[in-house]
Computed example of a mutant assay.
Amino acid sequence: MDQNHWKSPLPCDVYNLGLVPFADAWTLQKSLVQRHGHSPQPDRLLLVEHPGVYTLGLGSTLDYLKLPAEDLPYPLFRTERGGEVTHHCPGQLVGYPILNLKRHRPDLHWYLRQLEAVLILTLAEFGLRAGRQSGLTGVWVGDRKLAAIGIKVSRWITMHGFALNVCPDLGGFGAIVPCGISDKAVGSLAQFCPGITVEAVLPVVVNSFAQVFELNPVIQNAAPLGL
């Protein structure tokens, strides 16, 4: 048997940062990505909730805002990720993997499908049969979208990531056409599992992420330098 077949999984530092303003988490991501240009870095997974905010993808249109930007109930940021407008708020678990895909597979399509697999596996742990919709990115239960994905990859280092609606107030989505999809509803895990909390889901996401990406999660008790 090839000895390499039994190599230990690569470590991945996991940070549960709690409630963090979007701008702060965005700055932290960019700082961690930049470190990869200077010295070897571990894979990292940042897990956060955000106060209410809307974000746009790099090339996304304002046509999917139902109100003028200045009249939205929460701040609006244009980012470098792909995809259209989305909403973040407390009760939604957001994951920002900072991975070097050269250690995994340098393939954007593969990476997107892997993130979807993490969320499908997570929801299965709570008894939900989640899946994909043809031609769309994200994870669905029936026609309800429970998780959105939007990424940026530069020199095969990833940033941005996924947002899983655990138990959020979905009202903020009413001011936008989420991800530009007008004919399907946004949903949450709490609609199927009343009383579910982010605290209950977070370790399941970590385990699912580790399983799908074949990583060894190393839980960090302090935030990365810069937050």
Score class of each variant (00 low, 15 high):
Asp24Cys: 09
Pro217Gly: 06
His160Tyr: 13
His36Thr: 04
Gly91Gln: 07
Asn207Ile: 05
Phe126Cys: 02
Leu10Cys: 10
Val212Ile: 15
Ser182Ile: 06
His36Asp: 06
Arg44Phe: 08
Pro68Met: 12
Gln133Lys: 04
His5Gly: 01
Cys167Asn: 15
Leu189Ile: 08
Ser182Cys: 05
Ser182Gln: 07
His38Phe: 14
Phe162Lys: 03
Leu17Arg: 10
Leu189Arg: 06
Leu115Gly: 07
Val53Tyr: 02
Asp71Ser: 13
Leu19His: 03
Ile176His: 03
Trp140Lys: 00
Arg155Glu: 05
Leu62Phe: 07
His87Asn: 12
Trp26His: 14
Gln3Asp: 11
Glu70Val: 05
His104Gln: 13
Asp183Lys: 04
Ala223Leu: 10
Leu112Glu: 07
Tyr54Cys: 12
Asn16Glu: 14
Ile120Leu: 08
Asn4His: 13
Val204Cys: 07
Pro194Arg: 07
Val204Ile: 08
Thr122Gly: 01
Trp156Tyr: 12
Arg155Ile: 05
Pro178Ser: 11
Val206Gln: 01
Asp107Asn: 09
Pro75His: 14
Arg155Gln: 11
Leu170Pro: 01
Glu80Thr: 05
Gly52Lys: 05
Trp6Gly: 04
Gly142Gln: 04
Pro11Phe: 02
Ala185Met: 10
Cys193Gly: 07
Arg78Gln: 04
Gly127Gln: 02
Leu115Tyr: 05
Ala23Val: 12
Gly37Glu: 14
Leu170Gly: 00
Leu136Phe: 05
Ile98Gly: 00
Val20Asn: 05
Ala147Cys: 11
Pro75Leu: 12
His109Ile: 15
Leu17Lys: 11
Gly226Met: 07
Val205Gly: 02
Leu58Trp: 06
Arg35Lys: 14
Gly172Asp: 04
Pro224Met: 10
His5Leu: 14
Ala117Glu: 14
Ser31Gln: 15
Gln191Glu: 15
Leu72Lys: 01
Ala117Met: 04
Thr79Gly: 01
Val141Ile: 13
Pro203Leu: 05
Pro217Ala: 08
Glu80Ser: 06
Val218Lys: 05
Leu45Tyr: 06
Val204Ala: 11
Ile157Trp: 11
Gly18Asn: 08
Pro9Tyr: 06
Asp107Gly: 05
Ser154Lys: 09
Ile151Asn: 08
His88Asn: 13
Thr55Gln: 03
Asp24Pro: 07
Gly83Val: 07
Asp71Trp: 12
Thr55Leu: 12
Asn4Trp: 13
Leu112Arg: 08
Glu84Phe: 07
Leu76Arg: 02
Gln211Thr: 15
Asp183Met: 03
Gln3Arg: 12
Ile151Met: 13
Val48Glu: 10
Ala222Asp: 15
Lys145Pro: 00
Glu116Gly: 00
Trp156Met: 07
Ile176Cys: 02
Gly91Thr: 03
Lys145Cys: 09
Ser134Leu: 10
Asn216Asp: 13
Leu170Cys: 00
Lys30Ile: 08
Leu227Ile: 08
Leu170Glu: 04
His104Asp: 03
